[in-house]
Design a protein around this nucleic acid. Structure first.
Lengths: 332, 332
DNA sequence: TTTTATTGTGAATACGTATTCAGTAATTAT
DNA sequence: ATAATTACTGAATACGTATTCACAATAAAA
């Protein structure tokens, strides 16, 4: 049991004062070579690690960045978190993760917790609009991620274009009945529907399989799809756009169970291009996660380090459609 | 921009002293009704949140529990983290997550970071034995999770029995050639092999598909399986035990691509019983995650709160085999 | 030599909170 | 009435660090 050390104790062992130890640790140059050596030696020996809590209090900065996501069972968010952690570490920050579970109340509690823990800034995958007004009044900066919101610093995907890419791909393959599975009619759906509309195709709203958001999403997705099947007996479309890969995977499985071949009977395109899509050969809209993270972090850290309250910035990144076997079939 | 408030400022607004505000917040009973009301009012109005950093410093406890896992792309760990967060919150703790990426150096850095951030204790999914000696010398308690290690507080699964369950199930279904896919010959493999041996069946080590550990595991898994196929032309077994569900999924996909039917041609059983297994209908060894988390947390928090250094405790939980379609086929 | 820089070091302080201690006012007992 | 409790409240302090300031010792300039 190595005792927890303080600078004072290190100082005593090295026969110097506490401030001197502080200076050695922070690389302050006006400390003599000899003392630096002596102090470093003691630090090594006793395994001293400076107390970041005290540093935070004193410096009024924690080098902590918060991230609050709406769920963690979607591998897309896991990828996001993973990249964020690596990239933040490179820039000298640690991250602290919270999960709002699609719950605005919990989201606000999480943000309060961020504040209490003195984080320097945070990233937010918002549960909705509910907390945004008060978030913008907070004394620390935040950046909304995965979607762009005007009036907020935000970095997201061009969802309209993503929907368009999918619609175009399906049309090119000769489809004329379309399905959609997702939580609500968001931009990616709008891009999808609009593109069809522009091509004189009416999206039949019966083929919108609405999945309620919430925890245990796999079950909810299955329920939603089975609900559709009860209503319609069978899938009334030859291609379907799933608003994330988890949904795409669930759809694929249900199709499989019912002897529906993908892509021969129904073409499938997912969203996020997670490892699920990669493993299962599901076509998917790719989000440039690394670019999203670096862009977001740069923005956030700028806000943190230069207190200037300038105009909010919204950045849209471009989606790409990655084709795999689930949609490689031409309709005749 | 609501300014960040301190107790002093709240105190001034409420015409009381800072210690009184502290007492109100901590529910100290010797404060008059009237003052409590007055202070609470101000707190509400200005949205004051106590600075946990300062509290940590003063109280010498952060109410933070660390968890260091070896990867986060395996949904099993995501489940673990999710449950841990909920359960820890119930007990008044927040968690701080680190990822060692199967790297012992990084693992130690992460633990140093834990120490610096003044966490009260941590859970560890170890990368190996490398850091264990120095971990046991740390001034804060830790519990190893997912595997039991003697001499360490640890909570894990009875892996030997898990391997046994799988072997028994395969034998019952009439199989006589067996495959295994995993990182190394751990206890679950030993349980598997031993059980076969006890039944006069020799496990052919050519059918051990070894996957190197590391990041981007999906790719590594595929490489390993394809490597096997290059050597052996086709799978030389009628059933296979995958040491986690990610591997099971990848195996299933590769089989699918090659027109091998599961379970008709090859039976498959995975490990961890994650949503991947549930969605894809893969039989899997279920770990009682909730029990594991509550047990672990209880142990850890006991260690934290009562400083008594008593004997280390190792707890083994019981695995269950969840049968799904991937192994529901009787060999004739 | 004395003065002026220069360099290296420690004493004192502050960050925001919790807590001990002393002290005032109000209440009860004598 | 006075003494003895009781109930509140504020002043002072400490947690571990970074930083300002003063000061000693040395080196450079006069």
């Amino acid at each position: 049991m190595v005792k927890k050390m303080t600078m004072r104790e290190v100082a005593k062992l090295a026969n110097v004062s506490q401030p001197t130890v502080s200076r050695v640790i922070n690389g302050n140059k006006d400390v003599s070579e000899e003392i630096v050596k002596r102090v470093m030696q003691v630090i090594e020996e006793v395994g001293f690690v400076p107390n970041k809590t005290a540093q935070t209090l004193k410096r009024n900065q924690s080098k902590l960045i918060g991230i609050c996501v709406t769920e963690i069972y979607n591998p897309y968010f896991v990828e996001l978190i993973d990249h964020l952690e690596s990239e933040a570490k490179k820039r000298g920050y640690n991250i602290i993760l919270h999960n709002s579970k699609h719950n605005s109340i919990l989201e606000w509690e999480n943000i309060q917790n961020f504040m209490a823990r003195q984080i320097d800034g945070f990233l937010l995958v918002p549960t909705g609009e509910y907390n945004l007004p008060r978030i913008s009044k907070l004394p620390i900066p935040s950046v909304v991620i995965t979607q762009t919101i005007k009036g907020f610093d935000s970095v997201g995907l061009n969802h309209l274009k993503a929907g368009r890419l999918v619609a175009e791909q399906f049309m090119r393959a000769g489809h004329n009945t379309f399905g959609y599975i997702g939580i609500d009619a968001d931009d990616k759906f709008r891009g999808f529907e609009n593109t069809l509309y522009e091509n004189q195709i009416h999206f039949n709203s019966d083929n919108f399989i609405a999945v309620p958001d919430g925890e245990n999403s796999n079950l909810l997705i299955r329920k939603a799809i089975e609900g559709y099947l009860e209503q319609n007996n069978e899938f009334q479309f030859s291609c379907v756009f799933a608003s994330n890969d988890v949904m795409a995977l669930e759809f694929m499985k249900i199709a499989q169970e019912r002897g529906i071949r993908i892509p021969e009977d129904i073409s499938l395109i997912g969203f996020d291009d997670t490892y699920l899509a990669k493993v299962m050969g599901i076509s998917s809209i790719h989000q440039p996660i690394e670019e999203m993270i670096t862009t977001t972090l740069t923005l956030l850290i700028n806000r943190i380090e230069q207190e200037v309250a300038s105009e909010t910035v919204s950045i849209q990144l471009e989606p790409t459609l990655i084709e795999r076997s689930s949609s490689r079939h031409r309709r005749t």
